[in-house]
Design a protein around this nucleic acid. Structure first.
Lengths: 255, 255
DNA sequence: CCACGAACTTCCACTGAGCGGAAGAGGCTG
DNA sequence: CAGCCTCTTCCGCTCAGTGGAAGTTCGTGG
């Protein structure tokens, strides 16, 4: 009489992926029950899948019973090709920028309606105000995001600027003003934000374009004080951005 | 009369994982047929799984039809906790070392019988002689590997030094000599290699230990010429390694 | 121009792998 | 020690998954 009312139409593969999807930047350690809840699966089902993933090395279980992403998935992820090309090419330039400015440097691409941070460089002394690599932040409230938006298709811009989230008291959320701001970014070639994503963080960013002209990523810098001369750093970023663009494989596209 | 002779005992989850397992450092782009072959599955089966993975964002398909690891898996991998803690803590120190020496810096942990490179910093100008982050190299032929070996359990040392692979003409492969070398590394606190893994690459490495004493990782530097004074860099590495060890969460362990 | 092969995509009916409710085990708390 | 939580194990029903085969697309060379 074992009960059974299996929800139909759900493939096993998608259940496995739902388990992985239960993890995100703010939930990188989950107990079995949390995984079950977040992936929308019965406990017993989650249990079986999690056990299998753990056996393979995709998940690891800590002493306290919580699961985390395992080494095996880490290194599979490492193989993601395009982000890797970009990171490899960009890495020395990020170091150059960091060396001359001593500030936090960010490299981001657009992923749908988010800025995806593919690399960053922080100073040991600097407060860890911002996103780790792999983080996704809204396009409208970050300098790199605005740059990416300024070079995105019209429908993406419209979607991103419809009902933008207020993140801090300084976040600009009026669509009209954001549209003007984005146009301005396109015109002058760099974006600027002041405490719109994180209190105590000011930022500038420039586009990274291929020699052909397509903008594929954005390079930004974040400082922890409202420096009047932040725009003076723009040329430094531009030199680095040009260098990165030139060294990327010709037809490079994100994803 | 659809034929059917399903191989029993193979779970769907393991099939999905087999697909992911088909990718590795030297096979980061695969066609459907290659995936099917490498994961040991019928083409139709691989096709279905791959399609589902692609829909989720775990794989991406390039214009030429080849599949690669997708963004979604990249960022799930990014969440792997422990390596991330280590990388986050170590990153500024790697930059310090790189800034003062201008040489390639490597951070590795032991994963079974391999040195797993969790981070690296290369100079733009330096020849890209070595491993990317995520690479696994043999323990016996790399400086970081020898350091890790010097602080590994006896059975690991024996396993690693049984029939060691010859990678270059300079690779030391006599087990006896390697055992003595490893003991020497443990005694003097750093390891040194000369073109044993890559021709034209010389290296030194030191252990990263927790305040409690356990060695959890290794920090190394690689140069492209046989500098007599390579050992002079050891103190720099040690300062950085001590700093990393101190900042790691108290009971930190790899994996 | 067509035959051939290789890689990919779609189809479909059979069947065992997966399902999940339930019960049991362990652990913490008041 | 009762109540509550999380985790683990069990098991018989059933539908999701399976994979051979046929169809499609593309490139090659005769």
């Amino acid at each position: 009489m074992a009960g059974n009312a299996r929800e139909p139409g759900v493939s096993v593969a998608s259940r496995v992926l739902a388990v992985l999807g239960a993890f995100d930047a703010s939930h990188d350690r989950l107990t079995l029950s949390e995984i079950a809840r977040r992936s929308g699966q019965p406990l017993a089902t989650a249990h079986r899948l999690v056990a299998e993933l753990e056996r393979w090395g995709g998940l690891t279980r800590a002493d306290d019973g919580a699961y985390g992403i395992g080494r095996r998935l880490w290194d599979v992820g490492t193989l993601a090709r395009v982000e890797r090309d970009l990171r490899d090419v960009a890495s020395p330039f990020l170091q150059d920028v960091h060396r001359t400015t001593r500030e936090t440097v960010h490299l981001a691409v657009r992923d749908g309606l988010h800025a995806l941070y593919v690399d960053r460089l922080v100073d040991r002394t600097t407060a860890q105000v911002l996103s780790r690599a792999g983080a996704r932040l809204p396009l409208h409230a970050t300098a790199v995001g605005r740059v990416l938006l300024a070079h995105a298709p019209g429908d993406v811009v419209r979607a991103a600027l419809t009902d933008p989230v207020r993140v801090t008291p300084h976040t600009i959320t009026e669509p009209g003003r954001l549209h003007r701001e984005v146009a301005e970014v396109r015109r002058r070639g760099f974006a600027r934000t002041a405490e719109e994503m994180t209190s105590g963080a000011w930022s500038v960013a420039v586009p990274i374009a291929l020699p052909g002209g397509g903008v594929v990523a954005s390079l930004g810098i974040v400082v922890a004080s409202p420096r009047r001369d932040l725009v003076r750093l723009v040329p430094v970023l531009q030199v680095a951005a040009n260098g990165i663009g030139r060294e990327l494989p010709p037809g490079w596209t994100p994803t």
